[in-house]
Design a protein around this nucleic acid. Sequence first.
DNA 1: CCACCATTCAATCAATGTGTTGAGCATTGC
DNA 2: GCAATGCTCAACACATTGATTGAATGGTGG
Lengths: 225, 225
Amino acid sequence: MNTHQTHIETLALLARTLGNAHRLALLEHIAQGERSVERLAELTDLSLANASQHLQHLKRAGFVQTRREGKNVLYRLGTGPIAPLLVALRDYADHQQARIHDLVADSRSHPARLEPISREELLRRMSEESVTLLDVRSEDEFALGHLPGAINIPVEELERRLAELPAKQNIVAYCRSPYCVLSVDAVAALRAHGLAAQRLANGFVDWKAAGLDVETATRVYDPGP
Amino acid sequence: MNTHQTHIETLALLARTLGNAHRLALLEHIAQGERSVERLAELTDLSLANASQHLQHLKRAGFVQTRREGKNVLYRLGTGPIAPLLVALRDYADHQQARIHDLVADSRSHPARLEPISREELLRRMSEESVTLLDVRSEDEFALGHLPGAINIPVEELERRLAELPAKQNIVAYCRSPYCVLSVDAVAALRAHGLAAQRLANGFVDWKAAGLDVETATRVYDPGP
DNA sequence: CCACCATTCAATCAATGTGTTGAGCATTGC
DNA sequence: GCAATGCTCAACACATTGATTGAATGGTGG
């Protein structure tokens, strides 16, 4: 029984390492490329010593590795299935969000999910007519990768940035995963303003998993001086 | 009221909920079927009140749901992609274990991975001759599902339970995932005792993912009405 | 080999998380 | 209704984690 205890204890330890917003933020920045401690502290708005401590915590769990370059210690992502773990975590979070949203929607007797369109349907439409792709996730998620040609307007800014959208084109909104419900809100808001909008059924994760083109923000890797 | 939580804080909160060995243990027991608080407290060796608190923690994060039956409150697994999350966590842990193991192995100049056999190869052999399948994971993991006809001997008990294995048959040992390295140890131990043993390359996860038959020990979760 | 500087370590305090106790509150059986 | 049962809640003590400071380390570049 002693070894099993150790095994589950190990899992808990790993989960706990991810159980801190600052460490997750550091991890996301590191996922975009090697960064020095100083740069990471800047990016995450942490003190140098604090960032260093969190980074060592991550390192102990194997989520990051280090190497020295000149005066700087550069942190990079560790080996192993880290991405699947983070994706699973986000997927679950999306589902939770959707669940809460559904409760609210039910109480208001909302109709269903505003008939989402599939990836195939989207591809077909993109080849036949012009479609405006609207990415309603946060800016940093958008920067990490999005559908080619998509416009990024986080859902909470949508109402006051409607002007950025072409009035004549059909709009397809999407967010992360099938569970992510931001796009439902977005479509509802767009339609309320008289725009032709639909949502993509399975979101960005599905698109990427299908091996389709993904665009990333201009500056992907900036090692600095 | 500061209910505003950034996306990343939500992720951290969920991860933190999994970041406790007792909660993980509770979750694993619940995954096997509905259980009352009392039973769960027993199974995990926690006080009643403490178990109750941890369960409510899990409930807040949506990992479990409750219903009342007579005097008892029964906890069951929540909806949403919980299993993938736990699998991803375990996979990552397996990889970490393998990494440490490799370091040790390297320092001893061990040979490579004892030529693992693929799933296809295993299936072929199972159809042609008799093969003894040896599951070296812990008993509770075994209970949650294993290859059909497999014998379960946790790797740490292997040395003193060799008698349970048929001496004349070829043995194929496996554990969870490609990263899991317990089976390497097992094969090494078996060969040291003169038995014909090989390890399965990708472990149970791969087998299950391929949609092949899985045997379970205890009754599987029944959602009821 | 020396001075510099990015990073880490150590010590401290505040904040959070955990486990125990005993009280409180439903539900069932009498 | 009343006691018994099963669970939750509240309050406390204790352990762990997190942020801040300032000092130490150790590799670099001169």
